[in-house]
């Protein structure tokens, strides 16, 4: 007699915990063929608010951690992902070969970004030879709390937008791909077991059009990544709302994650701090 499987309940990931939506809502997630996979939590604006609070709370500790430590933790995420390679491949709903390639690319991308943690400052910082007796140094610093609308590619795309945000010390609130949110929540399980402090990454599943505007208008969010927004009107509205507190905005992008990522996704969420000090005896 075959055993009945124990199904997983897919919940949100906020502040390192896995709550259901405070709204009590969920929505069905189906495979590309239309088969029912699971009921995902449908996050509300209040969940988004809670996620921003959790990210804000996590920001000082995460941005204050050493770059070496952040790199270790990102590498640890890659290790944990490697251990669940097969599970993610199953969940992606692609052909087996394509799925494994995609998982492998996501793991490799995490390793690539992990290494940037203690190098980006050297690449983006400058020693400035000012015309006077001053020591003058510019260094990059994380922008703060970044709201990210993840692209449709459920794992590689997600990793490709989250890793560059957090590796430099930002905390984020991610709206997972609306139709394929399950790998995001499984990734949350990976994050929760990788020594990543709670609140550094918060993942919401639900309707992009419902959640993104609240995040775009939230006055305690410092930057907005609209990569996954496909509706031009929604993107425009979010970008306009983001102007209210001068959020840094990265616009919608395509969903091809195969190329060299470059520095752009990191530098979009970096500030430059310049410190002056006199030189004298």
């Amino acid at each position: 007699m075959s055993r009945l499987a124990v199904r997983k309940t897919y919940k949100l990931f906020i502040g390192g915990a896995f709550p259901r939506s405070e709204s009590g809502r969920s929505y069905p997630v189906t495979s590309p063929k239309g088969d029912f996979l699971a009921n995902a939590s449908r996050a509300s604006r209040k969940d988004a608010r809670d996620a921003v609070s959790a990210a804000r709370k996590a920001f000082p500790g995460w941005s204050g951690a050493t770059a070496y430590n952040r790199g270790q933790i990102l590498y640890r995420i890659a290790e944990m992902l490697e251990g669940r390679r097969a599970q993610f491949a199953d969940e992606l709903g692609l052909g087996k070969k394509a799925a494994l390639e995609s998982v492998d690319a996501a793991i490799d991308r995490l390793v690539w970004y992990a290494g940037w943690s203690d190098k980006i400052t050297s690449v983006r910082g400058t020693a400035n030879p000012v015309a006077g007796p001053y020591f003058n140094l510019s260094t990059p610093e994380p922008t703060g709390v970044v709201a990210v609308v993840a692209p449709a590619d459920p794992l590689l795309g997600l990793v490709s937008v989250v890793a560059p945000v957090i590796v430099t010390g930002n905390a984020c609130v991610v709206v997972a791909a609306e139709r394929t949110p399950l790998p995001a929540i499984t990734l949350a399980e990976v994050l929760a077991t990788s020594d990543l402090p709670g609140g550094v990454v918060n993942i919401l599943t639900g309707h992009q059009a419902e959640l993104a505007p609240w995040l775009a208008a939230h006055m305690d969010v410092n930057a907005l990544d609209l990569t996954g927004v496909t509706d031009a009107d929604l993107a425009l509205r979010c970008e306009q709302d983001a102007a209210e507190n001068l959020k840094r905005v990265l616009g919608p992008a395509g969903d091809d994650w195969s190329g060299d990522p470059g520095l752009g996704r990191m530098t979009a969420f970096l500030e430059t701090k310049t410190v002056w000090h006199p030189m004298g005896v």
């Binding site: 400058t126 400035n128 030879p129 000012v130 015309a131 006077g132 001053y134 003058n136 510019s138 430059t272 310049t274 002056w276």
Partner: peptide, 9 residues
């Protein structure tokens, strides 16, 4: 203090 070599913003 201001200088053309020093980023400001």
């Amino acid at each position: 203090r201001f200088d053309p070599a020093s980023p400001f913003g």
